[in-house]
Simulated scan of single mutants.
Amino acid sequence: MIDWKPIAEKFKDADAILIGASNGLSITEGLNLFADNAAFERLFGDFKRKYGIGCILQGMMAGWPREEEKWAFWGRLIHHYCGQYRPTPVMKDLKAIVGEKDYFVVTSNGEGHFELCGFDPSKIYEIEGNWITMQCARPCHDTRYPSLELAEKLSDVEQGGHVPTELVPRCPKCGGPMDIHMGAGQRMISDVAAQVRFQNFLNTYHGEKLMVLELGIGWRNQLIKAPMMRLVAGEPNATYVTINLGEIYIADNIQEKSFGLDGRLDELLPALRAACEV
């Protein structure tokens, strides 16, 4: 039985909240990049049988024979998980927990759900890129372009796993192919501006009561979990709360200022929200 009172008190007392999120949050929302499940079969069964891809992640990293097929995949994926997305209860609970406090989000999830749920895009660092922007595949320059409207158009006209050649996006500078802005490609353009905003947030709340809330991140994660635990270790007034199903890891040097909650996000976040609202 979780004693929510001391955790809720830390949230109420916090000057700001730093949220770290990875695959566990996406899976809770119904998006599993790694699973050959019923949802994948419904959305991509034809691609699975034609190209042998066994999950969304394999499709994201596939070497497609033609751009028309690559963009048919991306159009379908982005339309379903971004264009048709509506804020889920778990994200509504998270927004309520943050309330009016200042916050920053660092996530390896690329589907853009934080922004689509109304979190301020200037307070989000998508560390491995996102699906709702695209870039030159080479890249010949470092500008990123919106892709959601294009994906909706491609989804409308796709037939048999192909989109019309004239709708395939081309780089406005060099005329070459475009890629979704994501970390699966080695040529992903770094979001330097988001990195700077994140560092400014950390500088602002250095020495203050910072709540670090980690959602659905496995113990081996070096992109978010390891740096956040180091941050907590170096911040005397920080508190660390990690929520994950079946796997809780907290470094020994921050045990005394941490709470590890083993369970489903869609069960524990509503309970945390309720405790914070008392």
Results as ranks from 00 to 15, higher is better:
T28Y: 11
M1R: 13
G183T: 00
Y85V: 00
F47I: 05
F40K: 10
G129C: 03
M229C: 05
Q255H: 10
K257W: 14
E115A: 15
I17W: 01
G24E: 08
P87H: 15
P87C: 10
S22N: 13
R42V: 00
E208I: 00
K123M: 12
I7M: 06
S155E: 07
V196K: 15
E69F: 08
Q159H: 13
G260H: 07
E158T: 06
W4L: 15
A38G: 00
P146M: 06
L261A: 07
L215Y: 09
V98A: 03
V212G: 04
E68K: 00
I180G: 02
D15N: 11
P227E: 08
E277H: 09
G99N: 04
G218C: 02
Y51R: 04
H79D: 08
Y81M: 06
E69G: 00
G176T: 09
E67L: 14
P164M: 13
Y145R: 00
Y205K: 06
T133H: 12
M229E: 15
L57E: 02
Q222I: 00
I180A: 02
D156F: 10
V168S: 07
A251V: 07
Y145V: 05
L210G: 06
C140W: 07
E235T: 10
P65H: 05
G45N: 06
V232P: 07
H80S: 05
A39Y: 10
S258Q: 10
L77S: 05
A151V: 07
F73E: 06
L43C: 12
A226T: 04
K50N: 10
T239F: 14
L33I: 10
L148N: 03
N200E: 15
N130P: 01
N203H: 12
D266F: 01
Q195P: 01
L231N: 09
G112W: 11
L33P: 01
C140G: 02
I243E: 10
Q199D: 13
